[in-house]
Amino acid sequence: MDDSLLTLNRVTKIFQIGTFLSKVKIYAVRDVTLTIEKKPMVFTLVGESGSGKTTLANVLLRVVAPTEGSVSFLGRKIESYKKSEFIRLVQPVFQNPYETFNPLKKVELYFRSVINKLSIVNHNGHAAEKIIDQALSSVALTWEEVRGKYLHEFSGGQLQRLSIARALMVNPTLLVADEPVSMLDASLRVFVLNLFRKLKEEKQLYVVYITHDLATAYYISDRIAVMLRGSVVEMGPAEKVLLNPLHPYTALLKESVPNPYKKQGESRFEEREEQILEIEEYAGEGCKFALRCPHAKEICRREIPADVFLDDVLVKCWLYK
């Protein structure tokens, strides 16, 4: 236990939502147990939209409190850290860069306040600007482009990079990056992913990388956890899970990745005549994939599959026993 960076123990987060049908409970995160070992790595959470990735990240970041379960960081419960202590260790890159910065404040103020808080240098000085410029250049931006500007004067991709630069200025141990490259084109995407790789190797940075895109996940991940409507349904070394997915849902995610060099061919997943509402899947009693799975059996709809280990890969699916 103590030689881990991060441990989640049976974490559950329930939301109550009102819909056109009635009030329902959603297990946005359901009974998730996982460990990130103490060896710098990129740990990736993948899953479709609405699978609970951001909710899980918010639990790690102490933005939301879990309904049940606990999270430890470097051997201590996360709640036991003082706020100032915690933010030096764990930094977020939030999914929506438009919500990261206040539209009424100049974006540069966020950078100045980091310098101020960490008392790196006097934040008014010329030295401060130099540090900011360095942080910006790591994400291919310059002080010239940022100085004096407000939120609406940046493109989505620029805001994403600003939010990464700000988080990295703190030199955190763990970066929790929620869809950090979704608004970037292929070239800038590679630029940022290479930066993560480099920081992992040179500065022993740990990254929790959240995405729905298995191609970028393959490019940088060491370990991967696949989320489906709140649960982790497959987890293991990224190479293994992505090259040879066990869970039918992981296979669907993999098949959906656009690959310009491969003909799409026939899919094993037939498109449904009508779309399924997300809450219908959340409400299912058994495996949350049963409504879409080509292998679904009677038991799949009734009971949640147990954890099965095949070597070092965890899978939750009735196909494996």
Partner: peptide, 10 residues
Amino acid sequence: TVPTIGDKTE
């Protein structure tokens, strides 16, 4: 610059 599954080269 397009990453694909199965290719880890930088």
